[in-house]
């Protein structure tokens, strides 16, 4: 094996060698800003948080080494397990739903129409109101027992419906998923940009060949957009796993922890309850979970993501 590489190396011409060196230099030069930031601002805090995960640390005094105690506690902590379950449900329903909505709306709003900029803005605005207290009030008001949704249902069904959609265990999480889905604006914007980057002449050529609309979608749009879909999928999963501000503001993890997202539980342990060591340990478990999914998606990407290379 080594011999083969060595042999291969020796066969490289001087020019190719110089080229390799030049590539390496250029590569590091381009990523230098990020590399600097990583070394100066990110790497130490990350490693430190890993260290803290093996300590008892309340953020006020010095951390006390406790070995794997935090990890052991975690596996015995019923709320931790519940939050993992809640988070999986949240992620796996929300991400596909939001992605599909964003793509659908983006396809429509990437067209040329009068006032298209205004529509885009209007559809993007909910994402700007994300975690504000106004949303909490509106959600409680729309989905509460006396809310507008029940008003409509009562009209439709002809009998009084006073089910508290945000307040009951069976439905609270779904009302948050709906809220997350309603924030499709960011993904939509990225899809619109992606659609705009597809060269128009591809479509013109396809039209000349007599391709139907679905054919054009599956043969041109989908493959050409696949790097962007891939991006939105990966980032969608990462953000969904890490999201907590909506559930913090609206339900505060309740009722009975049925909306206790993993990241919210981390936040509460670290900030409300001053268990920073425990919060760090859970954060690293979260990192592992997301990493596993990311690796899986990256692995699958060679099969469906189409790059121009």
């Amino acid at each position: 094996m080594n011999v083969v590489i060595a042999a291969k190396k020796t066969t490289l011409t001087a020019g190719a060698k110089r080229r390799l060196l030049k590539n390496n230099l250029a590569g590091y030069a381009f990523i230098a800003p990020w590399l600097f930031g990583l070394l100066a601002f990110t790497s130490i805090p990350m490693l430190y948080s890993l260290y803290l995960s093996f300590t008892k640390y309340d953020a006020l005094g010095a951390p006390v080494w406790t070995g794997v105690q935090n990890y052991v506690t975690m596996f015995q902590d019923a709320t931790f397990w519940q939050s993992v379950g809640v988070t999986f449900k949240y992620v796996f329903i929300l991400v596909p739903l939001r992605l599909a909505t964003a793509l659908g709306v983006a396809m429509i709003l990437a067209t040329k129409h009068r006032g298209i900029g205004l529509y885009r803005t209007v559809y993007y605005i909910p994402s700007l109101l994300g975690g504000s207290v106004a949303i909490a009030i509106i959600w409680a008001q729309l989905f509460g027992s006396q809310g507008a949704i029940n008003g409509m249902l009562s009209q439709l069904l002809g009998r009084t419906v006073n089910f508290n959609w945000v307040g009951e265990r069976s439905s609270a999480l779904y009302s948050l998923i709906l809220l997350g889905c309603w924030h499709f604006g960011s993904s939509m914007l990225i899809f619109i940009s992606g659609l705009k980057q597809i060269p128009q002449n591809y479509y013109e050529a396809a039209l000349i060949d007599g391709a139907s609309a679905p054919q054009r979608f599956f043969r041109i749009t989908l493959p050409m957009l696949s790097p962007v879909i891939f991006f939105n999928l990966v980032m969608g999963i990462i953000t969904a796993f890490k999201s907590f501000s909506e559930s913090l503001i609206i339900t505060d993890g309740g009722p009975l922890n049925s909306t206790m997202l993993f990241a919210l539980y981390i936040y509460k342990q670290g900030f409300s309850y001053f268990k920073m060591g425990y919060a760090c340990a859970m954060s690293w478990v979260l990192l592992m979970i997301i990493a596993v999914f990311s690796i899986f998606i990256f692995g699958s990407s060679t099969g469906w993501v189409h790059y121009e290379e």
Binding site: A140, G144, G167, P255
Partner: peptide, 14 residues
């Protein structure tokens, strides 16, 4: 009140 009504707390006004 029903306990479900206490899930969301957006201020004393409510």
């Amino acid at each position: 009140q029903n306990v479900a009504e206490t899930t969301v707390d957006v201020g004393k006004e409510n």
